[in-house]
Simulated assay, not measured.
Amino acid sequence: MNIEIQPISERIGLKITSVDNANILKLDLESIINLFKSYGVLLFRGFATNTEIFKEFSNLLSTDFIDYAGGAFARRVINGDKTLLSVNDYQFEIKLHGEMYYQKTIPLMVWFFCAHPASEAGETTVCDGRQFFNEVSSSTKKLFSQKKLKFTISMSKEDWQRKYQTEDLSKLEEICRNNYTHLKVNADKSIIIEYICPAIIPSSCGKYQVFINSLLPTKQLNPKILNFDDDSEIPDDVIAELNEVAERITTNIVWQKGDILMIDNTRVLHGRRAFADEKRDIYIRLCAPAFSA
Score class of each variant (00 low, 15 high):
residue 12 I to V: 14
residue 15 K to H: 09
residue 17 T to I: 12
residue 18 S to H: 04
residue 21 N to H: 14
residue 23 N to H: 08
residue 23 N to C: 12
residue 24 I to S: 03
residue 24 I to H: 01
residue 27 L to G: 00
residue 31 S to K: 15
residue 33 I to S: 00
residue 33 I to R: 11
residue 33 I to A: 01
residue 41 V to Q: 02
residue 42 L to K: 04
residue 43 L to G: 00
residue 44 F to G: 07
residue 44 F to W: 01
residue 44 F to C: 05
residue 47 F to S: 04
residue 49 T to C: 04
residue 49 T to G: 07
residue 52 E to P: 00
residue 57 F to T: 02
residue 58 S to V: 07
residue 58 S to G: 07
residue 59 N to W: 00
residue 61 L to W: 02
residue 64 D to P: 01
residue 66 I to L: 05
residue 68 Y to F: 15
residue 72 A to L: 10
residue 74 A to W: 09
residue 74 A to H: 15
residue 76 R to A: 09
residue 78 I to E: 13
residue 85 L to H: 09
residue 87 V to Y: 01
residue 89 D to E: 15
residue 89 D to N: 15
residue 89 D to A: 14
residue 93 E to I: 04
residue 98 G to Q: 08
residue 99 E to D: 13
residue 100 M to D: 13
residue 101 Y to G: 01
residue 105 T to A: 12
residue 106 I to H: 01
residue 107 P to F: 06
residue 108 L to I: 00
residue 110 V to P: 03
residue 113 F to I: 06
residue 115 A to R: 14
residue 115 A to N: 14
residue 119 S to H: 10
residue 119 S to L: 12
residue 120 E to K: 15
residue 121 A to F: 11
residue 125 T to W: 07
residue 131 Q to P: 04
residue 131 Q to T: 15
residue 133 F to Q: 06
residue 134 N to W: 06
residue 136 V to F: 05
residue 136 V to C: 03
residue 144 F to R: 05
residue 144 F to V: 08
residue 144 F to L: 13
residue 145 S to T: 10
residue 146 Q to F: 03
residue 150 K to L: 11
residue 150 K to W: 07
residue 150 K to I: 02
residue 150 K to C: 07
residue 152 T to C: 07
residue 152 T to F: 01
residue 152 T to E: 11
residue 155 M to P: 04
residue 155 M to N: 03
residue 156 S to P: 02
residue 158 E to H: 13
residue 162 R to T: 12
residue 163 K to N: 10
residue 169 L to E: 15
residue 173 E to R: 12
residue 176 C to A: 13
residue 178 N to G: 11
residue 178 N to Y: 10
residue 195 Y to E: 05
residue 200 I to M: 10
residue 201 I to P: 03
residue 206 G to T: 10
residue 209 Q to C: 12
residue 209 Q to Y: 10
residue 210 V to M: 08
residue 211 F to D: 03
residue 212 I to K: 09
residue 212 I to E: 05
residue 213 N to C: 14
residue 214 S to V: 06
residue 214 S to Q: 12
residue 214 S to K: 02
residue 223 P to A: 12
residue 229 D to W: 03
residue 232 S to A: 07
residue 233 E to V: 07
residue 235 P to E: 10
residue 236 D to T: 08
residue 238 V to F: 09
residue 238 V to W: 10
residue 240 A to I: 09
residue 241 E to Y: 09
residue 241 E to T: 03
residue 242 L to I: 09
residue 245 V to S: 06
residue 251 T to N: 08
residue 252 N to Q: 08
residue 257 K to T: 14
residue 260 I to C: 06
residue 260 I to A: 00
residue 265 N to G: 00
residue 266 T to R: 13
residue 269 L to V: 09
residue 273 R to V: 07
residue 274 A to P: 01
residue 274 A to I: 00
residue 275 F to C: 01
residue 279 K to F: 04
residue 279 K to W: 00
residue 279 K to G: 03
residue 285 R to E: 05
residue 285 R to H: 05
residue 286 L to K: 00
residue 288 A to K: 10
residue 291 F to M: 04
residue 291 F to G: 02
residue 291 F to S: 03
residue 291 F to V: 04
